[in-house]
């Protein structure tokens, strides 16, 4: 038996080693591409360790391309949409979890069902409506659309988190004379912070990574985000791969930070969604 588990562990370690190579190599390659000189990029024999590491690519994308603007846009859109989801979604999830009212269940499923529509299938009406509202190429339009894409997810997952918090504390608070709102803000809200953190991180990353709606509804630097900004490199006649590497790295910063520091929350949020459907 002992030998068997040992064998199991070795094969597991081999699988993980291969998978980590597959995951990490492209990220490593992006990193070294971003710090290589153009001469080192355009050789038929790629170098696996940069010979003359340089920060010139980062300097040049921030000076010759509107990367400062893209970064501000990405942050504004992601923070704006996440904040809207927290304000609207937390209240809704709490309402669904704690109070019985007519249509509670069917409304929950209506919320969930709104995610059935592939984003591209709503691009035509959004494109037209955003035009009517004179919101074409604005950050506000981006925040609104990303809110639509993530709010149902946010509500659905947080219903589960609220369900898992015992009701007794809130009942005690109400007996002590707290109003319904006070009970929510003073008792339920602080207790549900881990769940809110988990869903907010996933919402933030999802919004930060959004591509399609930004590509179509934000053609200029006024509202363009980093994802679309990075893909602009391949629209050029001559692709500057080393600059693209630098731009890609900057776009990945939140992903890397969140995964390293908040891995636990991300796993919680993702699995809560999967288990509940």
């Amino acid at each position: 038996m002992a030998i068997k588990t040992g064998k199991n562990k070795i094969s597991s370690a081999i699988v993980l080693f291969i998978y980590f190579l597959i995951v990490l190599f492209p990220i490593y390659w992006m990193f070294i591409t971003g710090i290589k000189t153009p001469d080192e990029i355009y050789t038929p024999q790629p170098t696996y360790f940069p010979k003359h590491p340089t920060t010139a690519n980062f300097v040049s994308i921030f000076t010759t391309r509107p990367y400062i603007r893209y970064t501000i846009n990405s942050l504004t859109i992601a923070l704006g949409a996440t904040f809207t989801c927290i304000v609207f979604g937390t209240l809704a999830a709490y309402g669904f979890s704690r109070y019985r009212f007519k249509g509670n269940r069917s409304l929950r499923f209506l919320f969930l069902a709104s995610r059935i529509f592939p984003p591209i299938s709503l691009i035509v009406p959004f494109f037209i409506v955003i035009g009517w509202l004179h919101l074409y190429n604005t950050l506000l339009a981006q925040i609104i659309i990303n809110t639509y894409m993530w709010l149902p997810f946010y509500v659905w997952i947080n219903i589960g988190f609220f369900d898992s918090i015992p009701h007794e504390l809130e009942q005690a608070a109400q007996i002590d004379g707290c109003s319904r709102f006070q009970t929510f803000f003073k008792i339920a809200f602080p207790l549900s912070l881990p769940g809110i953190a988990a869903t907010s991180i996933i919402t933030f990353l999802g919004t930060w990574n959004e591509f399609l709606y930004n590509l179509i509804l934000a053609p200029t630097e006024r509202a363009k985000n980093l994802s679309v900004g990075a893909s602009d490199f391949i629209a050029d006649m001559f692709i500057s791969w080393n600059q693209m590497g630098a731009g890609a790295l900057i776009t990945c910063i939140p992903a890397i930070i969140f995964v390293i520091f908040f891995q636990k929350y991300i796993v919680q949020g993702l699995t809560a969604g999967a288990v509940k459907g």
């Binding site: 995951v23 492209p26 992006m30 791969w241 891995q263």
Partner: peptide, 29 residues
């Protein structure tokens, strides 16, 4: 777990740009 999650968190566009560069026929790794 953090390492396995990285590929999820990297923006899909960035992942495909990276693969486009790695799969390049003249200078690709």
């Amino acid at each position: 777990r953090s390492i396995t999650l990285l590929a999820w968190a990297v923006p899909p566009v960035i992942a495909s740009l990276m693969w486009k560069w790695m799969l390049n026929d003249t200078n690709g790794v």
